[in-house]
Simulated scan of single mutants.
Amino acid sequence: MSKFEIEVSLSSQAEMELNSAQSIYIPGCVRVFSDNTDLFCEHDQGTIRIKKLDLKSGYLLIQSIFDWYQDWLIQVDHAIISNDFEALAEACVKTFDNPVLIQDSNYRILGMSGHCDAEIPPEWYYILENGQSSVKGYEFMSKALHSSNMIYRQNVRRFQGKPGTLMLSGGLHATIAFRGRNFGKLTVLDSSRKLNRGDVCLFEYLSRRMAIYMATISGETQNYLDTEIIESLAMGKAVPKECVTYFQSLIQGSREGKFSVLVTNFSDPNRRGDWRTFQLIKNIISIN
């Protein structure tokens, strides 16, 4: 649609919940009509005006977008349910036209992709080189993502890249969470194509879909027992033994990459809390 002149007037709270184009007002759909030489796509959340486009061509164009979107959702659902996060990353790249990274709650890489057939971006290479679940990898991601300048629904935030740093590009990031429990992290860079409000709406919707599916899968198979172990240990929090055991098994059967933990500055080695943390860290390191 780049060749068309488009005017967008949408609510900042607009959601990605539309299903099809219609010639009349129907809940969950957009009304498509023409006014002189321009086409209007109208909903209670706002209006999109496409200049110099006839009604028949515009209707077919808009409906084809909805059809593509529904097919894409089927691909996404299948990838999440089957735990095929590489396929999910590839599907996201097709939609956002930008590099995508999917991680678990400990920043371990589940799926990643560059821009279509392009090489993996330098931001992703840094994470691979410095450890998928290392303190350096955690600090690298957390520092970049905590410098967000806009926060949306579904734990979605927009962050800015900084020239001369390891995070050259900004983008969108979401913590995949359901009922207070974190299951993963989703990041898309703003490098190949500038992300817009429509991308934010879709990112919010995708995050909510991932959270619901991952929470359901977790309840059935316990595949997501490793909730934020690295972050908890780095902050000196207690971690249940079964979580550490499961995390160790993930490290052993994961994709190639460095996994390491480094925690320093124990206030008192004889204190019970510090000693327990030390034992947990030793157990993780011992299988590396």
Rank of each mutant, 00 (worst) to 15 (best):
T37W: 03
G58E: 10
C92R: 03
H115I: 05
W275V: 04
K241T: 14
I62C: 15
L189M: 13
L280E: 13
A211H: 03
Q45H: 01
F247S: 06
A177F: 00
N98P: 04
S82L: 03
F278W: 06
Y69T: 00
P269H: 02
Y107L: 08
N155S: 11
K3C: 00
V239E: 11
K237D: 12
Q63R: 12
M141S: 12
S192M: 12
R181G: 07
Y59P: 02
S134A: 06
D117S: 15
I120N: 02
Y224A: 12
N155Q: 06
Q160Y: 02
L233M: 14
M150F: 08
K237F: 09
I151V: 15
I127L: 11
L189C: 02
I80Q: 07
S267D: 12
C41L: 09
L172A: 08
I251T: 07
N196L: 11
W72I: 01
E242H: 15
R31M: 14
D54A: 05
V200F: 09
G236R: 10
W72C: 03
N19K: 12
T37M: 12
S20D: 14
G161Q: 05
M210I: 05
Y246V: 09
A21T: 03
E17H: 09
K143H: 03
N223S: 13
L55W: 10
L10V: 05
Y205W: 07
E242N: 13
S260R: 07
E5T: 13
G170S: 10
N19H: 09
D226A: 14
P122D: 10
E15F: 00
Q103R: 10
F140V: 03
S260N: 15
W68A: 14
C92Y: 04
E15C: 01
A87L: 05
A238K: 13
T187W: 01
W275F: 15
I281D: 01
V156F: 02
